[in-house]
């Protein structure tokens, strides 16, 4: 008698649901996955809604009181918690909201009206509220990495997020360094794991997976300055995806000196 399959549920918060779409687009691999897990909640591909699950996959960041309560409630039922995508793992682009005070942001979005979102809070990654067991970074996530993490969950072993920069994968793919084309790329300070997805198509890395643990922020700044960027412009490049609390701490101590 085979053991019963682990039940997996997907939930979303403040996000675009693009990471779940990446999972839905896995094609044959998704069908393979359903042989070993029961997907009980995933609104992009099914209408049933299971109430009980073992593995909770959370997409999106937490940006209201209601979100926070809901996350705590759904997390309490899970044995394993997975943060899916940049919004969940680091706060992602939603962190831009935190660059100004809530009042200022509300004013610029809604104008001078009575507060339509009294419930709103500054954006947080989900690990600022619940303990996360697995991180799948990226905006969007990279499908093969999602499968690798699922494999680790099923085997009960940890998944090690690469601590080396995107350059490692980019070089192994023998891409022409975009710096040679005069473009500014965050690859040297950004976590790998996406198989240098953007540079493979001639684009620059925008840092969506967040910074490596010890980015050489100053050395990176020196390089970007050679390309004529000011410190503010460089910080702006970091801020699209790396404005979360943890990422800011990594570069600010070096750059702002």
């Amino acid at each position: 008698m085979p053991k019963s399959k682990p039940r997996v549920a997907f939930f979303e918060f403040t996000d675009c649901e693009g990471c779940q779409l990446q999972v839905a687009n896995l094609g044959l691999s998704l069908l393979e996955l359903t042989k070993v897990v029961d997907i009980v909640n995933f609104r992009e591909i099914m209408s049933e809604q299971g109430k009980n699950y073992d593995v909770l996959v959370v997409e999106g960041s937490i940006s209201s009181k209601h979100d926070e309560e809901r996350l705590r409630a759904i997390a309490a039922k899970a044995k394993v918690i997975v943060a899916l995508g940049a919004c969940a793992t680091t706060g992602g682009v939603n962190n831009l909201k935190n660059l100004k005070s809530l009042e200022e942001q509300k004013k610029s979005v809604y104008g001078n009206v009575i507060d339509p979102v009294p419930d709103a809070l500054p954006t947080r990654a989900i690990d600022e509220i619940v303990k996360v067991d697995y991180y799948i970074h990226g905006c969007p996530i990279y499908g093969p990495e999602f499968l690798k993490v699922m494999e680790c969950i099923l085997l009960g072993k940890p998944y090690k997020v690469p601590q080396y920069p995107v350059c490692v994968e980019c070089k192994q793919n023998e891409n022409i360094c975009v710096y040679e084309k005069g473009l500014f790329c965050l690859g040297p300070v950004t976590r790998a794991g996406c198989n240098s997805w953007l540079p493979n198509y001639g684009n620059v890395c925008v840092g969506c997976r967040g910074l490596i643990d010890n980015p050489a922020a100053n050395a990176q700044k020196d390089i970007l300055e050679k390309y004529g960027l000011t410190v503010d412009e460089i910080l702006e490049k970091f801020s699209l995806y790396c404005a979360g609390k943890k990422d800011r701490a990594k570069y600010e101590k070096e750059i702002k000196k």
Binding site: S29, E32, L33, K35, V36, L147, K148, M150, E151, L154, L155, Y164, P165, C167, V168, K171, Q172, C177, G187, P188, V189, I212, N214, P215, A216, A219, Q220, I223
Partner: peptide, 24 residues
Amino acid sequence: VGCTNCTAVCPTCYCFDVIDDVSL
């Protein structure tokens, strides 16, 4: 900047790691 490119492209760097991949 710690990009590792110098070691990636070196014709005499031979360090490796060993990993296991298990299918679904």
